[in-house]
């Protein structure tokens, strides 16, 4: 228990670390929107530069209207357990009308209880933390969408090649 005169100071490594993270969000189901958001947000909080590229179904995450209406379905999800008793949900049950809205409500409720924001609010936070949001050109062309349909903080709609070029040297996550 020796007292030291030289204080121990956490290593915040404020210098330019150059660490970059590129996250490709390709899923449009509510449950699959979160992994990229949580990891991107955590990286920003650690001083890492973060670029997020929204492609295919993940394009819904940055669509002004659709980002508020994302759904979760237990169909085909064998890791879905019932809220009571932790019993695995039988797949025949997953198809019953009403189960999907309930599952969506329940997921949103559980996420909110943890103090975790909704998808639009989470993206607000990521943009405020310096995260850069990009839309995928092929996805926009396929769906006939333009930047006018997207959140204001989406910097631009770019090609896959543009994204790969601009994230040279970054660590990459595909979700």
């Amino acid at each position: 228990m020796a007292a030291s005169n030289k204080p121990i100071v956490p290593k915040f490594d404020d210098g330019p670390s150059g660490r970059k993270l590129a996250i490709i969000c390709s899923k449009g189901n509510l449950d699959m929107a979160y992994p990229g958001l949580v990891l991107g947000n955590a990286a920003l909080g650690e001083g890492v530069e973060v670029d997020l590229f929204f492609t295919f179904w993940g394009f819904d995450m940055i669509h002004k209207k659709r980002q508020k209406k994302m759904k979760f379905s237990p169909v085909g999800n064998f890791a879905m357990h019932l809220p009571i008793g932790g019993v695995r949900m039988p797949q025949w049950l997953a198809w019953i009308p009403g189960v999907q809205p309930f599952a969506t409500w329940y997921l949103k409720h559980s996420i909110k209880k943890l103090g975790v924001p909704t998808v639009p609010d989470f993206l607000d936070q990521i943009a405020a933390s310096g995260g850069r949001l990009w839309g995928c050109k092929m996805s926009a062309d396929m769906a006939g969408l333009t930047t006018a349909d997207l959140r204001e903080d989406v910097i631009d709609i770019i090609t896959a090649a543009d994204f790969i070029e601009m994230t040279e040297g970054a660590q990459l996550l595909f979700i």
């Binding site: 228990m1 020796a2 007292a3 030291s4 005169n5 030289k6 204080p7 121990i8």
Partner: peptide, 13 residues
């Protein structure tokens, strides 16, 4: 748990 002296007193860190 280390301690250190700051402002003339012992601090646990």
């Amino acid at each position: 748990m280390p301690t250190q002296t700051m402002l003339g007193r012992e601090i646990h860190v």
